[in-house]
Design a protein around this nucleic acid. Sequence first.
DNA 1: GTATAAAAACTGACTGGTCGGTATAAACAC
DNA 2: GTGTTTATACCGACCAGTCAGTTTTTATAC
Lengths: 209, 209
Amino acid sequence: MPRNGSTTRTTIMDAAEALILETGFSATSVDRVIDRAGVTKGTFFYHFQSKAGLARALVERYAEHDLNNLESNLARAEKLSRDPLQQLLIFVGLFEEAAEALTEPYPGCLFASYCSEAGLFDQDTLQIIRDTMTTWRTRLGAKIEEAMAKHPPRLDVDADSLADMITVAFEGAFMLSKSLSDPNVVSQQLGHYRNYLELLFAEAPSAPA
Amino acid sequence: MPRNGSTTRTTIMDAAEALILETGFSATSVDRVIDRAGVTKGTFFYHFQSKAGLARALVERYAEHDLNNLESNLARAEKLSRDPLQQLLIFVGLFEEAAEALTEPYPGCLFASYCSEAGLFDQDTLQIIRDTMTTWRTRLGAKIEEAMAKHPPRLDVDADSLADMITVAFEGAFMLSKSLSDPNVVSQQLGHYRNYLELLFAEAPSAPA
DNA sequence: GTATAAAAACTGACTGGTCGGTATAAACAC
DNA sequence: GTGTTTATACCGACCAGTCAGTTTTTATAC
């Protein structure tokens, strides 16, 4: 059955992640996970030392995917333009494109899920979330400072909090999208973020293109 | 002991709300609630038909406070200016002021908490959250359209999604603030929202004040 | 004011069931 | 034959919820 490294482990993790996004970590019992994954309890505890171990493995995988998205879209944007501002706008646009393709509300973010039940997790597990968010801040903050050097912003803004804003847009929009069952919220909010960047760094007088 | 209508009931609700914001609804057992509130199990089930009944009562109270905030700050802003754009900017500024006063990260939003465990709640309870968010969208969306009529925006934007943006800023900033233990995130993000509104509706040429 | 009765608020032991986790023995895979 | 999986039985702790009964508050009567 295990084709790659460990399909069974992945199956368990996929089932658990889906359940956690529906009902949270606490309500996601091991029994429910193994039921959905189609494995027995022995198998679960063969692959994971404990339920907390599963939580840790899930957030590590999620963070890895998240940072891959960050880096790959940043790399794509850097290939498409040499201007840091344009790179930023393209970067946001790439996520916007992906969000536009969504037809269902949004399953939710594992980080937000953990954050809502933060008291249940150990510090190492929560640190992974912090590190991931800090990486977004640092990576985009640097790019924003490049853009600010080339294109003086119309308002005095802080690069880090402007970088944080895309995380805020994602997390807030995920939540609103899920609550209202509205698949359009995410792309709309990313669009507003892109608008904001454009207006902030627009040439002061109406210059010809 | 109960001086007004029902102090005991309020004590239970306060204890429950604090616990839910720490560890989520599912992990907030009735035993823990009554332990923190200093009442017995019988008392709990005298005041609430079930744990789901508590969830319902909590979200109703939270929504009421939330809409009170919306309406009172909107009323204050409308007194301070007659221009819809200025009213919007003042409105956001009032929340910004309150957020600046924070010294601790942020305990979290009950709506976000419920949303992360949405599968646990009945539709009536979730509808209260939807209704509250829709009210924000409608109330602010109308104000934004007034502003758009008076001050043609520099970009073509949708009034409703622009109204949603403050909810997104709140929810996203709450989450980031809690994750990073950074009390400044909320006011910073509200500041960016205010900046965005200013830039969107700024006079096209540099006009004299 | 004091006796009385009804209503409201509260008590805490108890129930059946689920929780995370363990144990064991036998099957299956490469 | 080692690594993986199944099946099932089991454990103590905790879960939401019940219930028979006690205490406190309030309303009424004299």
